[in-house]
């Protein structure tokens, strides 16, 4: 049964990389069910991330957000800050797709704080870029400028010309 779980996860990932998101979702749901049977929280967390990602490409941003929230919840339980940061970034982008810029900014800010804690300059730069955009969308150009400046500073530091 444990091997079946891993096989389902791998099949889900393969379908995903082939762009077959409906099939990917079915396998990741099966993987999730088996992870729950075993109480395997790490595998459960991976399944939620994979399900969130697949739903983005199915255009079901609302469903993706719910899966990413489960990922976030489990990453905190598992004390995995890198995954927590990634979940916040995914949620920020998903709420941008849902045109909810306030909530997008909340998650991008959470991502920024964790990236700073982890001294992840690339993550910090991306968070600042996203926050600049979110504040522009919310009609707060002064705050947007602060983050755009920070984004420029980090991009120069890490040599990202684009």
């Amino acid at each position: 049964r444990a091997a079946q779980g891993r096989a389902c996860g791998n099949l889900g990932n393969t379908h995903y990389l082939l762009g077959s998101f409906v099939e990917a979702t079915a396998f990741h749901k099966e993987r999730l069910a088996i992870a729950k049977e075993f109480g395997d929280k790490a595998a459960e967390r991976r399944a939620y991330s994979n399900l969130g990602n697949a739903h983005i490409f199915l255009g079901r941003f609302d469903v993706a957000a719910e899966y990413y929230k489960k990922t976030l919840q489990l990453s905190r339980q598992l004390k995995d800050q890198a995954v927590e940061a990634q979940a916040c970034y995914s949620l920020g982008n998903t709420y941008t797709l849902l045109q909810d810029h306030e909530r997008a900014a909340e998650y991008h800010l959470r991502h920024l704080l964790i990236a700073q804690e982890l001294a992840d300059r690339v993550g910090e730069g991306r968070a600042c870029w996203s926050l600049g955009n979110a504040y522009v969308s919310m009609g707060s150009p002064a705050q947007a400028l602060t983050f755009a400046k920070k984004h420029l500073e980090i991009s120069q530091e890490i040599g990202d010309r684009s």
Partner: peptide, 26 residues
């Protein structure tokens, strides 16, 4: 409006491009 819209789309699009190849492996 158009310029701001493009800026917004750009950062999400970059994320989605990365996401296409992002799988959590077993």
């Amino acid at each position: 409006g158009q310029r701001l819209h493009l800026m917004q789309v750009d950062s999400v699009q970059r994320w989605m491009e990365d996401l296409k190849l992002m799988t959590e492996c077993e």
